[in-house]
Design a protein around this nucleic acid. Structure first.
Lengths: 135, 135
DNA sequence: TCGTGAATGATACAATATCTCGGTTGGGTG
DNA sequence: CACCCAACCGAGATATTGTATCATTCACGA
């Protein structure tokens, strides 16, 4: 199971790590960039360096606490690892991100990888969509 | 249909654009970064700036001549638009890229988007795999 | 061939992320 | 509780990827 806190992840419980984890927990449905988190810290009066944010996010990722997504923006987005795998659908008009799971797609992927003599290590599926009803 | 040459794409036929298109056409199965292309040009004695490579690749993408992929590397990879859509499977050990098509997955995606009231604009599926036989 | 607007190359700049290093601190040990 | 030290931190330098600017050059229709 994924670690749910810093100790379980084998990380010292420091102030910056606690605050960053809090921010990730309080994220709504939004996926945050390192800079989002940095600015959020600054706004709440914290004195935490941007380098620390990147370092901590990398540690969190290595520890399995968070997932890192690249989408198509050249900027990485982070979200807490919910434990259950899911893919993403991004609305190109509103930027809204919807998470979904499709066992059908998962199975098809395994089949394809197997057919080529591989096993799946990971995968990334992002569907870019727009609202169906035209104005 | 996708444009197959510079004129059809509405682009002036200039030396840099011809050479960059040639390099993309001579790419084997490999997907190239802007820097790959730049170094290839330099090695073959051309005097073409890196800025031009980026500019031309962006124009090619806008014109539908090439596709840009982000994978997970923070670096964009380019390949000629073959006209037929395909997804990618990347071997995390060898870096090899395999292209594949799965109508099963395509259909499942359409179904999911529709169920949320969206239509698909585009999508990106990358499966990260490793060879099945362990040593 | 000539003229003109588009394209180019060099370089400065911007954005994202990592590295380095001196100073600080969490938390185990005595 | 006080000490100690490896782990951690903040700041700024640096690396990497890509874009903007601008003077010069070039493609191509007349």
């Amino acid at each position: 199971m994924e670690p749910r806190n810093l100790k379980e992840a084998g990380l010292k419980v420091t102030h910056p790590r606690k605050r960053i984890l809090e921010i990730l927990e309080n994220q709504g449905t939004k996926h945050l960039t390192a800079d989002d988190i940095y600015r959020c810290l600054i706004e709440s009066g914290e004195d935490i360096g941007l380098a620390t944010v990147y370092r901590v996010l990398n540690q969190f990722e290595a520890a399995g606490l968070v997932e890192k997504h690249n989408f198509e923006s050249g900027q990485a987005y982070y979200e807490l690892d919910s434990g259950e795998h899911h893919d993403h659908m991004v609305c190109v008009e509103t930027g809204k991100v919807i998470e979904f799971v499709s066992e059908e797609i998962e199975a098809a992927q395994r089949k394809i990888a197997q057919a080529h003599g591989y096993e799946i290590e990971d995968h990334s599926l992002v569907i870019y969509v727009r609202p169906k009803q035209k104005c």
